[in-house]
Amino acid sequence: MKKILTLLLIVSLLVPAALIATASAETKGTIGLVLGYRRDEFYMDLESRFLSAAQEAGYELLVTDTDFDIARSVAAIEDYTSMGVDAILSWGSAQFVSAIEAAVAAGIPVVCYDGSTPSELVTANVTYDPIDDGNAIGLWVKAYIEKNWPDEEVEVAILDFPASSEICVGRTNAFKAVIETIPNAKIVAQMDGKASRADSMAAAETILEAHPNVRVAYGINFDTVAGFYAALEGRGKTDCICVSSGSWGEEAINFLVEDHPQYKAFTLMNPWDMADASVQAAVDAIEGKEVVYNQAMIAKTYDASNISELDYKLIIESR
């Protein structure tokens, strides 16, 4: 009888302890995400993948949408530091350095994605290499011109986004560097499309007014070149091809799948790859593993001939 009572007592003590242990084992900790914004498909897919990747790794993910506002992002990093999260994932900017260094000083590893933060204390900068991006799409345009317009003077127009000093300026510069190597190509215009479709359309109309014979339109992202295309449509101009860097989205991909006569090629950054690499870097840092500081990812160039190689349907369906 005594043994049974002792056994019952032990079981009654162990069961709640096991439940508590099970409950506490559900999450390993918390990661704070400083999200750029939620206004395009790339960042929407990026956020959802951050959530699922963190969950798979056993961490709860707190998200702050900063709308790419520097002050709001700095405040978010400081709030995560105050909360004592286990790691911070933040879009990168040089203006975050002080806040990020304060977080690292508090023992919180910080992984920057989609742009780097120039500080040795940052745990890792996970970015798509803008130079490689601009270079790749430039080489695609060069090959297209050599094949289709070998003997024609080809005017090229660029819609950039100087506010994005690292990524978009990097893409643009790399693209221009390749174009300048094409003997029969000439950059006739470069304007700020503000990374938005409306602003880019307005800028494109200005360019087309001055340079109606533009044959190649380049945008630093899909929205930018889509704005350019809207201006082309408005003018009924069909002899101009549109290419862009840093693209992602169902609309862009479908243009390639359908072999659109003017949307010809985009470099597509897979947000899932970036999210997976960023979360992995954060988890490794939490667990004390060595993390590669600069993790430059390659944005592959897609056109109608190879778009089928991209498993985009899975990402679209998971939304």
């Binding site: 520097i70 002050a71 709001r72 700095v74 405040a75 400081e78 203006q95």
Partner: peptide
């Protein structure tokens, strides 16, 4: 408080 913090951060830049 977020507003005053953002104002403070913006002042910095």
């Amino acid at each position: 408080l977020m507003y005053v913090r953002e104002a403070g951060i913006k002042t910095q830049y």
